[in-house]
Design a protein around this nucleic acid. Sequence first.
DNA 1: TTGTAAAATCTTGTATACAAGGCTGGACAG
DNA 2: CTGTCCAGCCTTGTATACAAGATTTTACAA
Lengths: 226, 226
Amino acid sequence: MKPKAAPLARELRDRLEGEILSGQRPPGSRLDESKLAQHFGVSRTPVREALRELAAADLVVLRPRQGAVVATVTVTQLLHMFEVMAELESFCAKLAARRMSAEERDQLLQVHEDCRELAEKGEAHAYYDANRCFHEVIYAGTHNTYLEETTRNMRNRLQPYRRFQLHHPGRTMKSWKEHRAVVDAILDGNAEAAAKAMSHHVTIQGDVFTDLISALPESYVHAMTA
Amino acid sequence: MKPKAAPLARELRDRLEGEILSGQRPPGSRLDESKLAQHFGVSRTPVREALRELAAADLVVLRPRQGAVVATVTVTQLLHMFEVMAELESFCAKLAARRMSAEERDQLLQVHEDCRELAEKGEAHAYYDANRCFHEVIYAGTHNTYLEETTRNMRNRLQPYRRFQLHHPGRTMKSWKEHRAVVDAILDGNAEAAAKAMSHHVTIQGDVFTDLISALPESYVHAMTA
DNA sequence: TTGTAAAATCTTGTATACAAGGCTGGACAG
DNA sequence: CTGTCCAGCCTTGTATACAAGATTTTACAA
């Protein structure tokens, strides 16, 4: 009935978000309204609105009278964000263990198998996508759409930085083994174990975080203010 | 040096947010761009940008080509949001118990005392504000600014609905006693106990949530879709 | 009277024009 | 040579005009 209803600004938002998340527009890069408008062949108005929405999602920073740049964070902020992320993901796993239906558990196992194949083949990039699927299945398993969205937003916000995490050789296989602990706990219906396993998987403790920080281009983070 | 730098749209955003959170503009009420522009004596442009920002904070809903309304939720969504809220607040308490400095612990005790006075006097409205302070002190105690902001946003999002919660007679005193459990645990440095006590305080389990739902005006929630 | 359909009106979406604050570069003084 | 200040330009912020979709009203027919 309604094949098209194109809110132009929304489309811009999605395209820009994609370009940011994909690393095409790295943290710190300027977002000139006029240039963007020209680039997309529209006027400044929808561009501004798209930028506002991205700013609200913390993907870009809007300094009054000084224009927009792709969000850059300090190492401290990154640490804080990972801490919240870990808690949310952990909570998702906990609820999933309690609430997943039989079909959802099957699906979880299926995605987990897909991940295994890619991990064994060492296809880091494909594993990266499959990993996202894995987490999405768990989000859905919480049966809490608000938590789902909140956690997904959190994940998106960190995406430009996580990108570097899995590219180390051997990391994918290690990641998959961590997944397995989560899957086992969820299938057992052991909520506490699931939470703990997930927390371990995405945690900043251990060497994962340090590896990540070390791998980041310097331009991705700005100097600490304190 | 720079006493004023007024980004007009920002001011609008804050004023509108205030009017929404205070209940002056209840969930479901329409937000006509032209009327708002006229009301505030500005053009539609900054109004639109303010609405976009509020929409990103989930305080208003923007249906394409159909205008903006103050966000309305289903009972299910409300339940989901309270579940996430409880987890975040609980996590804040846990971290606060581990990280609060001596000064911050003193401050917590101080605010707690203020709450006691108001609770004993039965001044529900003033207690309401003091309660917010109490939670803010705990947020600060996490030493994680990102968690702080995330939890505060979550709390704001629920504010229009929480408003009805504490107005029942005896609720303030009960709330204060729940606070006490949190304070004791934090001062003891018992992270797990603090998390549990806070979870209990803001939890949807028990009769608090049902009371809240029952007290809500019908217009505040819309019919369940399923 | 009621239902449908079309037109008028009103609202939002987009583009453009204008105003105002910040940045860059050069000139001048120390 | 270096630092400061001023002027011009460039970017963002705001207003207004125009286009397109949605709602309402009204007319007509069953």
